[in-house]
Design a protein around this nucleic acid. Structure first.
Lengths: 254, 254
DNA sequence: CCCAATTTGTTCGTATGTATA
DNA sequence: TTATACATACGAACAAATTGG
């Protein structure tokens, strides 16, 4: 059972060619992955952490700084350092998102169309780095912006990682779906791989998004990876870009 | 005239509420923007820089570290710190790129279809943060992958920033176009804003890329920004995603 | 091949400033 | 006001990589 403030053992001289701050990083990452450090909780102060790991404050800060850069931790001067939590704001600046052509951003209104259990096909298994035929959960969501249906999402989850997931639990979640993964299954989506193409709307898409069959649609295939780089979700998003666009700013400013 | 190793003045107590390392950062950025530090050149060593700025080695390293994180500088242990240069490899990991569905990456073969001087329309002026009607250069390029035409690029450049640019100079460039901006005009593309949508191929696109009119195409509108965040290029790319995809990995690994 | 000089990388520790509760 | 936390700045010492002799 996780304590509010876990204590760490000294890093000693583990990993001969490995810099100390990297050993500290991996210890912190491991504590998050294992659930010892839960999202939203505060880490012990830098002084305390440094003394627990038996490294200098500077080395400790270097380790924490890299995790902050990777959006794994969040530092707040005067308050403390926290395990990052998923929320709508983080999503907007860390991942791609859809916004109106004039730049208006809005939190989409989500509607779950279907929730089914089945088995992974070749494409899904390849993306999730597991074998075809293993148990999976497939969810179809429709997102509305300004009341208009804009995105149709088909999510595929490995059932082994989401034991006990039911449609009603999913529907009754209070926040974003990545926050739901975090809170209910201890799974943090740290980064994503995306492949984008243009396709013609099929009948299903056309009906759900109110476009004519054959209309050009954006198709985004996203593999979401956990902190340990395990694939946790494969998502195919079909986006109507008549009034909206898929946006991101590349590389952070200096 | 730029010297090989410029010398810097002490930062003293400029900018009261400004951390020293940020003042150092801005000095280095200014030296790159002004051309005192040319891309590819080595900076003075950290000890020398620290003594020139009259800051500690640690403060100097913090400033340099942030610029390295922003891909402005490159550090090489045992050799020195260099002003980053654009090349095909950097492009692949810093920006989006097109690759074959099976993941094969290849440096595209580029063909310049047209080079014209004209004036900015509203959309272009808006993207380049200048006024409509000002002088502009419009270039159309076609990119081939595995011999197949895949991308049609229409580049719009503010003529004021690219004085003396001619079609023959552009065609005879030895490297990538961003490297060309760097070498010939001292303009470094530091980051980009992209907006993606799906459109139907018009007759021109269909002819140039060998697709049927009306086929779904990916359209990427990119505004490239310099180190000082000035827009330097507006590019509309039309991509045939039958055999290829638009790819990027989001957020760096921890 | 080895050595020496140079440069960045890592680690240490201290002191002081700023933000928060 | 006080206490605590992170932020900034300093500087020293040694390790690791590179280069040139």
């Amino acid at each position: 059972m996780p304590t509010a403030s876990p204590s760490f053992q000294p890093v000693a001289q583990q990993g001969i060619g490995q810099p100390l701050y990297r050993v500290v990083m991996r210890r912190l990452l491991g504590a998050i992955e294992s659930g010892d450090l839960e999202p939203g909780t505060a880490l012990p102060s830098e002084r305390v952490l440094a003394s627990q790991f038996e490294v200098s404050i500077g080395t400790l800060r270097q380790a924490v700084g890299e995790l902050v850069a990777g959006h794994i931790l969040v530092r707040r001067q005067g308050r403390g350092t926290y395990v990052a939590q998923h929320n709508a704001e983080r999503f907007l600046f860390q991942f791609f998102h859809v916004e109106r052509t004039d730049g208006l951003r809005e939190v989409p209104e989500l509607e779950t169309l279907s929730f089914e259990r089945g088995h992974l096909d070749e494409e899904q298994a390849d993306a999730l780095q597991t074998r075809a035929g293993s148990a999976a959960i497939t969810i179809e969501n429709r997102l509305r912006l300004q009341g208009r249906p804009v995105v149709l999402d088909r999510l595929t989850l490995p059932a082994a990682m989401f034991k006990g997931l039911t449609e009603s639990r999913l529907r009754s979640r209070p926040s974003t779906i990545y926050r739901f993964y975090q809170d209910e299954y201890g799974i943090t989506v740290a980064r994503a791989l995306e492949r984008v193409r243009a396709v013609a709307a099929d009948r299903h898409v056309a009906r759900q998004l109110g476009v004519v069959p054959g209309a050009p649609m954006l198709q985004v295939r996203r593999t979401a990876l956990s902190i340990g780089d395990k694939p946790v979700e494969y998502r195919v998003s079909t986006i109507s870009t008549g009034l909206h666009e898929y946006v991101h700013s590349l590389t952070r400013p200096a």
